[in-house]
Write a protein that binds this DNA or RNA. Structure first.
Length: 642
RNA sequence: GCCCAUGUAGCUCAGUGGUGGAGCACUUCCUUGGUAAGGAAGAGGCCAUCGGUUCAAUCCCGAUCAUGGGCUCCA
């Protein structure tokens, strides 16, 4: 809603004709004498399409804004004047009239109010007082107040309220089953015995619970550009990255791995659901309401109604998670208890309108990719088994990506008491201790969840994988199965995600940058072997060698540019290429290959072609492979960044 | 969103109230090299954008945008 507010000596108007959307039963008919008002506060008022979302909030906020101004200016009365020209996104007339009437009703408790009729052509005369406060405008939105630094007039139904008498206890659970209670009000625990042997967990607790930050820019922010992995696009919104070919490869390989876990190992059914959802559908609003200020909103072009107004119901939101589409699909799905558990996989591009100050490199984005897996289970036992399987798979991925992470569990106390042994078993699998938070009662929809918190190189952490055991949502969303007795029953849902692919990229880069000689895991290195001919004379030989390596499934390229050998080595090292093979007389005449190995302090090793292939195949065994989609000849590559 | 910092060539960064600088990269030529920089020449910029102050602004001031950090947030 847009408001233009004028403090006037006098204001008058008269009706000059009907429009197609004119309201009936107007007391002052066409041609009647002018309506004259002395010392009014005139409120020109435009009701916008988005006001439909939260009718009551709009009315109340407008009321507070107007009375706030009136309190200071002390007008004799208020004139509410419908005025279509303050916005290009007009609400449907019926809604506009409803909101205007509701606003009039509120204001009448404090001031005499006249509302000019809606949908009529009118002429008006006005003399504005001209003092500094006599003209002002306001934009009223459904977003919670308090956003612009103002105190919240209408606090949303917050989680905090629902959550306030839930009591938490914290302790460290080692994978041998030992519990050590810790007090999160006491920073000294960071240097205490409980965390002495668990450096990664200590970092996560320092960052997440004590908010200890060292204020440095994570080095991956510049490295992602320099390595031609990811960059910003000025022509998009903040928080949306472009991926260069090497970054795209990294992204695809990680996606492949997540997909392999889901489809080949867990035998999930894969689905693909829409990106945008109708905000006027109650199910969607119900799922997204408390998140709405962070939605990207999509308005489709206006459609005229027969009455000449604008059609309502054409507001969409971009999904912030994959659940919308899956739940929407499953509420119409017939499920028998004999089919459970059912597993679904979707890799969903998701959008969250994070506040501008919260964005950060690859870690916090507005557009990102979340592969997620949902299991629909018969009962708690089965739910917990699913939980365990998912936990183990995500742990495998974290191992394969060689990143540093710590485990945090949050559990309703009664479930902890019941399932402690199983949790210890999971920790034993991942060989990690965990921070455990037990809750005195249910606080959210889940009874149990955990997070893998990745640790970056500057003391920060960010959430990666999570699994949540949801014991109450299924009924709410109408996802039921039919049990042995032919009755409908709600499933236990295991929500899980391996974590945003972009965050994996972030942590893999950060992990590399913790080392003196940074290097990516071999299966993720864009170029696995670079061949450098000592001079152009050896190019034929290098091409043949490249073909052999390439056909063994190794990403190989040739630096055929006219640089000195030393310089080409330098360029290759700057690209973090793990294996560099130099080709000159010795090799052509049948010697072993000279391989410079970045994993081994960049030292040179003389090994045969077969040994090199075997070494690389062994190291990347079981990991996804893709070809590098860039020209084999480095001289043929464009330079994306510097 | 608020607070702080930054924005100069493709990249990394100097610099000045009065013709814009370096190194690398790029183009051309020479050089055909043995494990982190071979040589020469050339091309390159509305000094983030928009306003203001000034005879004159890349520089001073304001706003905006973008990036990074802090706060907050992270259903």
């Amino acid at each position: 809603m847009q408001l233009l507010i004028i403090h006037a000596d006098e204001f008058s108007y008269s009706l000059t004709g009907k429009t197609a959307i004119a309201e009936e039963a107007v007391p002052n008919l066409l041609g009647e004498p002018e309506n004259v008002f002395k010392e009014p506060l005139v409120v020109f008022c435009t009701v916008e399409k988005s006001d439909a979302v939260d009718f009551n909030t709009i009315v109340k906020k407008a009321f507070y804004e107007i009375t706030g101004i009136a309190l200071r200016l002390k007008p004799q009365m208020l004139v509410l004047y419908p005025y279509a020209h303050l916005s290009d996104s007009l609400a449907e007339p019926a809604l506009a009239v409803d909101i205007l009437n509701a606003l009039k009703g509120e204001l009448e408790s404090s001031y005499p109010v006249h509302r000019a009729p809606f949908g009529w052509y009118k002429s008006f005369k006005m003399s504005c007082k001209g003092h500094p406060l006599s003209e002002s405008s306001r934009h009223i939105t459904g977003a919670p107040a308090g956003e612009a630094g103002k105190p919240a007039l209408f606090p949303k139904k917050t989680r905090e309220e629902a959550v306030k008498d839930v009591e938490s206890e914290f302790f460290i659970l080692d994978y041998n089953g030992a519990e050590v209670k810790i007090d999160l009000n006491d920073k000294k625990i960071l240097n205490g015995d409980a965390l002495k042997d668990f450096p990664s967990l200590r970092k996560v607790i320092a960052f997440e619970e004590f908010k200890i930050k060292d204020g440095q820019t994570p080095p991956s922010v510049s490295a992602m550009k320099r390595l031609e992995i990811a960059g910003h696009d000025e022509n998009s919104d903040s928080g949306h990255l472009r991926l260069y070919p090497k970054g795209t490869l990294l992204y695809r390989l990680l996606s492949d791995w997540a997909e392999d876990i889901a489809l080949n190992q867990l035998k999930c059914m894969e689905i693909e659901t829409p990106l945008i959802y109708n905000w006027n559908k109650p199910e969607i609003k119900g799922q997204g309401e408390s998140f709405h200020e962070r939605h990207y909103t999509v308005f489709v072009p206006d459609e005229k109604t027969e009455a000449g107004g604008f059609a309502k119901g054409k507001e969409f939101v971009l999904r912030f998670a994959g659940d919308f589409g899956l739940f929407s699909m499953l509420k119409d799905t017939k499920i028998s208890y004999k089919q459970l558990p059912l597993r679904f996989y979707e890799s969903s591009k998701s959008f969250r309108y994070e506040k501008s100050g919260e964005l950060s490199g690859l870690r916090r984005l507005r557009g990102f990719t979340m592969p997620d897996i949902h299991s629909f289970c018969l009962n708690l036992e089965e739910g917990f088994n699913e939980y365990g399987e998912l936990y183990k798979k995500y742990s495998d991925l974290a191992e394969a990506a060689k990143i540093e992470y710590a485990v945090v569990f949050r559990i309703v106390k009664e479930y902890y008491n019941r399932y402690k042994d199983k949790i210890v078993e999971l920790l034993r699998y991942s060989k990690k201790p965990a921070l455990i938070e037990t809750l005195s009662r249910m606080k959210h929809y889940w009874a149990l969840k955990h997070e893998f918190q990745g640790v970056d190189s500057v003391g920060g952490s960010c959430q990666l994988s999570t699994v949540q055991l949801d014991v109450e949502d299924a009924k709410r969303y109408g996802i039921n199965f039919v049990n042995e007795n032919g009755e409908k029953e709600g499933c236990i849902i295991c929500h899980s995600s391996v974590g945003a692919i972009e965050r994996w990229m972030y942590l893999i880069l950060e992990e590399a940058l913790k080392k003196a000689i940074p290097v990516l895991p071999l299966w993720l290195s864009p170029t696995q072997i670079r061949i450098i001919p000592v001079s152009g004379k050896f190019l034929d030989f290098t091409v043949k060698l490249k073909e052999k390596l390439f056909s063994s499934g190794i990403r190989t390229d040739i630096d055929d540019r006219d640089f000195s050998l030393g310089k080409k080595i330098m360029f290759a090292e700057e690209e973090w290429i793990p294996h560099i093979v130099v080709i000159g007389h010795k090799e052509v005449e049948g010697g072993a290959l000279s391989v410079r190995n970045r994993y081994k302090e960049r030292k040179n090793f003389n090994i045969s072609e077969e040994e090199l292939i075997k070494e690389i195949k062994d190291e990347t065994k079981g990991m996804p492979y893709r070809n590098l989609i860039l020209p084999d000849m480095v001289s043929k590559r464009p330079i994306f960044v510097g």
